[in-house]
Amino acid sequence: MQRLTRVPSEGSDRIAVLQGTLDLIVLRTLQSMGPQHAYAIATRLQQVSEDLLQLNQGTLYPALVRLEQQGRIRGTWGKTESNREAKFYAITKPGEKALAEETRRWRQMSGLVEKLLSEGA
């Protein structure tokens, strides 16, 4: 018997995606991994977060649609290694720019929060 696959389930130690950060995470993933389909993105997010991130894969779609409409990513239909059809998303030029900007802002923000939290202690 092979080991049981861990599938997402309700857990108290899991964190919900902070509003607005999902876009940033998706862009970053696409930038570092190249064009990916949604499932690959979701899998990657779970791996990176070591399953701490509570993410129904379906919730990824709104972010993808939003980013695509903003012109930050572009989706094209293609085939996976296993020859299944899937929509592959790639980061675009404006997407790269937005990612840089959002990253800067995030760092600033998290730095600030961190500072406030440690000072208060």
Partner: peptide, 21 residues
């Protein structure tokens, strides 16, 4: 079954998708 669970509510997701769209 597991795939559907991993994906979350298909219809809700469709709604969210539409909302964004």
């Amino acid at each position: 079954v597991a795939a559907r669970r991993a994906y979350g509510g298909v219809e809700q997701s469709k709604e969210l998708h539409r909302d964004e769209r």
